[in-house]
Design a protein around this nucleic acid. Sequence first.
DNA 1: ATGAAATAATACCTAAAAAGCATTTATTTG
DNA 2: CAAATAAATGCTTTTTAGGTATTATTTCAT
Lengths: 293, 293
Amino acid sequence: MDTRQLSYFLGVASELHFSKAAERLFIAQPALSRQIQQLEQELGVLLFERDKRNVKLTPAGLFLQQEGIKLLSQLDTIRQRTQQIHRGEEGELRIGHPGSAVYSVLPMLLSGLRSHFPGIKAILSEVLETQLWEALLHYQIDIGFIREPTPSKEVNTKVIYEECFALVLPFEHPLNESSFEGVHQVQHEPFILPPRHAGSIYYDTLLGICEKAGFFPHIVHESNFGATILKLVEHGLGMSIMPYSYSNAGIGKVRFIALNNIPERTQLSVVWRKNDTNPILQNFLSLVEAFGG
Amino acid sequence: MDTRQLSYFLGVASELHFSKAAERLFIAQPALSRQIQQLEQELGVLLFERDKRNVKLTPAGLFLQQEGIKLLSQLDTIRQRTQQIHRGEEGELRIGHPGSAVYSVLPMLLSGLRSHFPGIKAILSEVLETQLWEALLHYQIDIGFIREPTPSKEVNTKVIYEECFALVLPFEHPLNESSFEGVHQVQHEPFILPPRHAGSIYYDTLLGICEKAGFFPHIVHESNFGATILKLVEHGLGMSIMPYSYSNAGIGKVRFIALNNIPERTQLSVVWRKNDTNPILQNFLSLVEAFGG
DNA sequence: ATGAAATAATACCTAAAAAGCATTTATTTG
DNA sequence: CAAATAAATGCTTTTTAGGTATTATTTCAT
């Protein structure tokens, strides 16, 4: 019983008329009659009751009709989904990202993914910047978001987002956007910053901001998790300088003062394996491209 | 994509080796290679990554393998069930029966059905004897159980069970099996019997029992439902004569005294349409035959 | 009644598809 | 570099599906 015989059978079963069914199936009536006979013989089951004039389904035929319709539609679904997977329109994309990406580009990219490629499921995992390259090269993720792309032979990088830094203060701190003139105003305050080893260029940029303002920050705590820093700031343990997009996070009662007037800015880049031909990745990259990366 | 191509594909997908798969599929390797190529071309999807030495599945191929296995096994199930329906090993058998059959043959027949033909589902409906012929001839049931088979041109009948009658008394009644000598002992008691119109031969048999014992029963209530009669007897409203198998019913606190020593006995017969070719019915009848009908 | 129309089956032939065989090409391994 | 392995290619044969003409049977209209 192959699919051709089955669909011929379904044709006759729905028309209950060999000649009409043959016409609808674009074959000659004798050919159809024979295929049905062969099917019946192979199964050893009479599927139609024919009395030289009328054709009707036997109980077994009725069952085969009901189930056969389902089966063929399943086969069609399988075919379509196989093709979608081939075109990269269906499947999983494993994304590694730092926590900060959650508050800026990631939500927009994921909603774009949802609308353009509803079959692609994003598997998100928060990965520390230090572990991102390893995760990528060990095939644990397919694409990563990172603030400091170090060019590499095995990995492609592309900047997709740029933003200014922000001074983060406890909400009760006297300094606010109107009274703010420059970073030097907080030169005597305690600071909470990421540890140096977590991303040296990023760290150096932060220190550069302070240095230009004429001081070296008094660092009282370190954390590589943005949310932790925000909580520490909220409790008045110090202040921090973070990418402005953290202001979307809504974590902690803190005040963000955007540092628009200094040249230092921070970028978010995507990184992926150069040799990766996964069409899902390619589709995601085309989305990144359209996003204005 | 027909079933042959699909099973060829599954062969290669599980062996990941064209030559070995070809051997297992009993075809030559070039034929297999070509069928896979054709399948890939038809779908427009690369299913295997071949590098002249190794064969491995692409993501789309992996999906097709997973789904294809399921599909082919479904097809096989459909084939088997279609054949079972044809052989009458699967389907529904609508059985009409009087309430009394529930306490004798029906449970045994149904458990025999369950073990010999697990695919046949019995649809039981309690049908009054007066309506049984109609239900049968109007195709509302496929087979019926009845106590008084009147021979007919359109219907076959077959006796399957014979039993004696029993005197049914309230549990508190002084008469019991040891003190019982004959029906004449209850000639002055009130009786609860089925109405005459419910089955005249059956009714006449009951009256015949009394008549031979030398009295005409004083009928105080009538009911064509055995359970109702039992309840009325329990409450001391009278006594009754019923098929002995009602003693299995466990309805009401009543005493059964088997009337073994009188010639009157009651039979249970099956009836079915003479022209019915339904193989499920035939299988059920073979069971009835084996049951010793 | 009788002939025309309808309808599935049969007989026979043709075309297309699948399978087989021999060979080739490319790659790995010793 | 030769030998072995494995998939692909070219060509032929076999099998299967499809087409045309015809038959047999039934129904319907005259």
